[in-house]
């Protein structure tokens, strides 16, 4: 069974049989009380009535979801039509996260492949090099990126002095900068699982393909990709999910100009709006999207394992 496969059921032994409740209790207490309960409470809050300027009134209401999905005009008296504002914010976040995932894959796959095909000694050094930046505080990395690419930052200074460009590139406060930030934040999440998959890849398959006159790219497409697919999918999920709710990159690199899911939710609890049920509803919708993705992933995973 693959390392890190969920259950470990195959290798399960029975030495401490009967002790499971005692051993699991701390996990249940901590995660159950301090994460599961709060999330359930948010679910409840999303169906309550909002209190002006923050807080909830204990009265059932669908207003939060209604506000999310239906547009009743600025004054709330027009016939309802589909509200695109929030769907748009979610869609943009999903698109943004998807693009970041795609770019990570495009760069991460060759990198992972390259590392996994070195000899074992230099392999661990390459791996070490790729993972170090990940261990540096995310905030500091994002700030460093901002410093580097802003109009008066070293990158533009350098390019101006060399004469490659006539005026600053204007990278900061753009979607490109946010993309760069997300890519920078989560690339190792893509490289590591793919690396693990490639490492287990049996190159006899490539040899067999080559014997049958398959070119390198055809082999990559038809033989290698299907085999390392689980690693790629795992990497995509590990990049996509945190990118979806990312807060720092849009805030620091994107200029906080447009709401993303993260800042939209934050705004309801910490900023101008003070609409808790709406923030709770947006949280629940985000959570549902993420759980759906994970569920599809888990089911596919099970299928491949049964095969």
């Amino acid at each position: 069974m693959a390392a890190g496969a969920p259950m470990g059921a195959g290798t399960s032994s029975h030495i401490y049989e009967g002790n499971a409740p005692r051993l699991m209790a701390p996990s249940w207490i901590f995660i159950g009380f301090f994460l599961l309960a709060p999330v359930i409470m948010m679910a409840v809050y999303s169906f309550l009535t909002k209190e002006f300027r923050g807080g909830v009134i204990w009265e059932f209401s669908l207003a939060a979801y209604d506000q999310f999905f239906f547009d009743r005009g600025l004054f709330g008296d027009e016939p309802p039509s589909i509200e695109w504002t929030y769907i748009g914010i979610f869609w943009r976040s999903i698109w943004q996260a998807g693009l970041a995932t795609f770019v990570c894959l495009l760069i991460g796959f060759p990198t992972a492949w390259f590392i996994a095909t070195r000899d074992p000694q230099s392999r661990s050094i390459w791996l070490f090099l790729v993972t170090i930046p990940y261990w540096v505080n995310l905030l500091i990395r994002t700030v460093s990126m901002k410093f580097l690419i802003r109009d008066t930052g070293p990158l533009n200074e350098f390019l101006l002095q060399v004469g490659v460009i006539g005026e600053p590139l204007g990278l900061i406060n753009t979607n490109f900068a946010v993309q760069l930030g997300l890519f920078y934040s989560y690339l190792p999440f893509m490289v590591l699982p793919i690396y693990a998959a490639v490492e287990r890849y049996d190159f006899a398959l490539s040899e067999a393909a080559a014997d049958l006159y398959s070119g390198a790219w055809t082999t990559l497409r038809l033989i290698i990709l299907p085999v390392v697919k689980p690693g790629i999918i795992a990497g995509c999920i590990l990049v996509f999910v945190p990118s979806l709710g990312a807060f720092l990159a849009p805030d620091l690199l994107g200029g906080a100009k447009t709401f993303m899911i993260g800042s939209l939710i934050e705004e309801q609890f910490k900023g101008n709006a003070g609409n808790w049920p709406f923030g709770a509803a947006a949280s629940m919708i985000l959570l549902t999207i993420v759980l759906c993705i994970l569920l599809v992933y888990a089911r596919n995973q099970n299928k491949t394992e049964i095969r």
Partner: peptide, 26 residues
Amino acid sequence: KTLSFALINLPLMVPEVVTAVASLVF
């Protein structure tokens, strides 16, 4: 057992911003 496994991994599944807001309110 299955539920316990899901529970242990719950913190990885819930988006960070949701965890943050939910904890605050809770």
